[in-house]
Amino acid sequence: MKAAAAQASVPAPALLHQALASQAAAEFVMASGYDGTIIDLQHGEVGLEDACRMLRAIPRDRNAYAYARVGSIDAATILRLLDSGARGIVAPTVETAAQASALVTAVKYPPLGGRSLGPSRPALYDGEPYTDAGNHAVSAIIQIETRAGVENAEAIFATPGLDSVYLGPADLAVSHGLPGRGDWADGPVRDALVELSYLARGAGLTFGSYCASPAYAKALIEDGLVDYVGLGIDLVFLNRMAQDAITALRSES
């Protein structure tokens, strides 16, 4: 997500994490009103071939936030995802400027990075020259989710070609010895969120965070702390709906 895309008058985009390998689900996410998706190759059952098919299932006129989170910063995997239409790559557990630089190298065409030109979806990027258009259209997004990442944030955020920072609150909580949950109103995770939001904006980057509940996500947006949110996980939604349905069926009331 580009810093220039975050405007106060525009509602903050909401993205659904997808852990289920389903092209239909990718289509339904967009039809439901979500602004985009984060296809998760780090957790869940989505493999590279699945992710490429899911990206192609997202309508071309709605794919501005068609993101993929990789398991590691592997240039070959990232290239396949980008050529299938990913508009952003989220790299998890970034703790050093060198890792952020490796992500930019994999995501961006020269001179910013080292992405290779090759056959991809027709007219993937509009504009001339093509490589400049591609670099503008695709976001390099680092995920901060450890104490080390927070401590090194200023150096990481200074990486040329980086576009956005995404907070992983559950893993950050675990790194502090706390329960691995997403929504924190106080404590070290909340403190880190506020600090990272300030530092990211100061570096010309956008800032987002995963949120478990709509109320928490709305509060972060209204407080001006985030430019976008990851709101929920498809597998968790399915589990909750199934639990609600069977509980209602078997209730005695």
Rank of each mutant, 00 (worst) to 15 (best):
G204P: 00
D227R: 00
L178Y: 09
A185D: 14
C211Q: 05
P179C: 08
S197D: 06
G177M: 11
A200G: 08
Y198H: 11
G168C: 04
L199M: 11
G224I: 14
G202F: 07
T146W: 00
K218M: 06
E145Y: 09
D223H: 07
P160E: 08
L235I: 14
I156H: 04
C211I: 09
A215C: 02
G177I: 13
V194T: 15
L231E: 09
L199K: 15
I142R: 05
D183T: 12
W184A: 09
L178A: 13
L225H: 00
P169T: 14
V194C: 13
L205C: 04
S209C: 14
G182Y: 13
L167H: 05
P160T: 10
G149E: 11
A192C: 07
G180L: 07
V189D: 04
A203G: 05
R181T: 15
A215E: 13
A192D: 09
S213F: 04
I221S: 01
I142C: 06
D223S: 10
I144Y: 00
P179A: 07
A153F: 13
D227G: 02
G230E: 05
R181P: 14
Y216N: 09
R190N: 09
D191P: 03
I142T: 14
V189W: 09
V165C: 10
P169N: 09
A155Q: 11
I233M: 12
I156F: 08
T206L: 01
P179M: 02
A192M: 06
P160W: 07
G230I: 05
V229S: 03
I142E: 05
A212D: 07
G208I: 00
H176F: 15
H176V: 08
L162A: 00
H176D: 01
Y166T: 03
D234T: 12
L193K: 11
F157W: 03
A217G: 15
L167A: 03
L196N: 02
L162Q: 04
G230Y: 06
A217Q: 03
F157V: 01
I144V: 14
L172W: 08
G168R: 06
Y210S: 10
W184L: 13
S164E: 06
E154N: 11
L162I: 01
R201D: 02
G168H: 04
G161Q: 07
V229D: 07
A148W: 01
A185Q: 14
R181H: 13
L167Y: 04
A170C: 10
L193T: 13
A158S: 14
V226Y: 00
A158W: 12
V226H: 01
D186C: 15
E154W: 06
L235D: 10
L220H: 02
T159E: 02
G232V: 10
A173I: 15
S209G: 08
A158Y: 13
A219H: 12
N152Y: 06
E145I: 15
I142G: 05
G168Q: 12
A170Q: 08
A192R: 02
D171S: 04
I221D: 00
G232A: 12
G232D: 05
G230W: 03
S164R: 06
V226G: 03
Y216F: 15
A153L: 11
I142Y: 03
G149N: 12
K218E: 08
A148T: 12
V150G: 02
A185H: 12
G208Y: 00
L235G: 10
A212N: 11
G149T: 09
